[in-house]
Amino acid sequence: MLIVGELINASRKPIAEAIEAQNAEAIKNIAKEQWEAGAHYIDVNAGIFVEKEADYLQWLVKKVQEVVDLPCCIDSPNPKAIEKALEVHRGIAMINSVSLEKGRFEAVASLVAGSDLKVVALCMSDEGMPETAVERVKIADKLINKLVNKGVLIDNIYVDPLVQPVATNHNFGVEFLSAVEQIMNNFPGVHTICGMSNISYGLPVRKILNRTFAIMAVAKGLDSLIINPLDRELVAYLIAAETLSGRDSYCMNYLKAYREKKLNL
């Protein structure tokens, strides 16, 4: 299970304030906490600062990597901001994201082409948001093929099938899950990734829906998640879900988590 720690996102108020005040300590602390909790990538997002996004994104990468020995997930649709962040990035970053929307594919894909960068391929096209599994798989197919044709290794592609709120259409959960299963079966070697919180929009006690949905997606083959790694319960259940899905040889990960006291809730 690959975990992207989602907390350094400027759409969260304390983060926006820390960025504006250039409070490096605050950012470093959150990076460190996520690292200690087992995150593999630290997401950095400065999207709300439209004009200053590129500078802030670069600053975030610098500050995060001053304290943790982890790559970042550079969370921006803006190729200029991504490039600026990459200038200072150490290691192999993940870019979040490329999609089939006009203008957005070429610009970001050309940054990734011929590099070792990991890339999130978001299932969105100019035809709008996919609603069914069939629509998602169709977009995923195009994205994967176009990226592979540009020389991106399939192992570096993380398809995000796009989570939509179950409150607005009760089939949105099951269509997503079915898409994960088909993508993982149809394109051996590719990864699937998503954030959780969209699923529960408009409903109470969102945590229960988010967690249950994450577990169900892992059962369908989802192997990467953008989550809050400080949520110890969620992480423990994800480890268990992966073990139960047949992706934990001899249950070694589960036992390792036990010995590291990650299962003491």
Partner: peptide, 10 residues
């Protein structure tokens, strides 16, 4: 007020 939710609005 948080008594009704999106599906109920629909």
């Amino acid at each position: 007020e948080g008594q009704f939710f999106v599906p109920e609005m629909l």
